[in-house]
Design a protein around this nucleic acid. Structure first.
Lengths: 175, 175
DNA sequence: CATACAATAGTCAACATTGACTAGTCACAT
DNA sequence: ATGTGACTAGTCAATGTTGACTATTGTATG
């Protein structure tokens, strides 16, 4: 559902063609979820069937025609209703990465340390990306809720890295 | 993959029949991911095909026979390899719940506040569940890595609640 | 004795997601 | 002129996940 909300939310701001939509969703540039092209087209066609969006063919010069998706009134109504549902209820996140930590003490200390440092470096990279995204946006200072997801990711990555540092420190201490 | 790791990790400790496995996975009692019955049986049958587990029929009294799944040497090898892969690499978590927060400023302040308080209450419930799970385990003080996932969830829920409190406070402030 | 519920084992069809593929235009460098 | 890569629009088959369903036996309750 949150995917639909997000897609509708985008189309609400600007009608757009599929390719542009994809740019928003195929990386975590702005949101803590991703989805791929076939998913987008699939959702778009379902929304079309439901009357939430309409498609306009737009011919610009001799370029191949672009399908521009535009939200309808029914779509706007759906958006409003989804929004309230979603804000008012909490959907669990899954943390696949945490599972393996449960078995950490099966690994020799040294090996565990090396592996956790690898993991740490990867998270650092993600954090850098998010920071870059935030930089690019150069929002006004009081940027509203649109920035929240990115700030959320920032926090999350930092917490994740701290946890790893703690674990690594714990491993290094000779008992 | 982390699902396989987890399943193998369980079977490594005790051979068990499907029903017991399910108890572990259908709630978040011990892990920050869940999966449902058909998924478990599906994985189990794949692992059987791969030679990672074998099934023994166990007849106890006149009860219907129970299929006990037992890890093989190949399964143990797979576990070891998966474990290293997973510890050393970070898999992104998705945060479906955060999406809707991006559109928060479309809602009237008061409504937003009410909805966020609902959400807050739900997270509080989850936290209580996790706390209960930790209590039940009554692990030895130096409980190893097995507790990590639950502690992780604790922290996560608490961070989530703090964030909500901040947002709510921000909404209440009259400008 | 009947009835219901927990323990046990699974299956099946539907749905969501994705990797890999096709296909055409345009701008630019070689 | 030729090739390369970005822009644009999708599709298809495979995979993973799940809701809902079917069965059987044992135990407790009315």
């Amino acid at each position: 559902m949150e995917r639909k909300l997000l897609l509708l939310g985008l189309l609400r701001m600007h009608s757009m063609h599929g390719y542009l939509v994809l740019e928003h969703f195929e990386s975590r540039a702005a949101m803590p979820i991703t989805f791929k092209k076939p998913t987008v087209y699939n959702m778009l066609s379902k929304m079309k069937a439901d009357g939430w969006v309409v498609v306009r063919e737009e011919q610009e010069g001799k370029r191949p025609p672009r399908s521009v998706y535009e939200i309808t009134e029914a779509g706007e109504a759906a958006f409003q209703s989804l929004l309230r549902d979603e804000v008012g209820s909490y959907t669990e996140a899954e943390f696949p990465s945490v599972v393996s930590l449960a078995f950490l003490d099966l690994l020799p200390r040294h090996e565990a340390k090396v592996l956790l440092e690898q993991r740490h470096a990867q998270i650092e990279d993600r954090l850098r990306e998010v920071n870059a995204s935030i930089g690019e946006l150069d929002m006004p200072i009081h940027a509203g809720s649109a920035l929240l997801p990115l700030r959320y990711l920032q926090r999350h990555y930092m917490a994740e890295m701290e946890l790893l540092e703690d674990i690594i420190k714990g491993l290094s201490e000779i008992e």
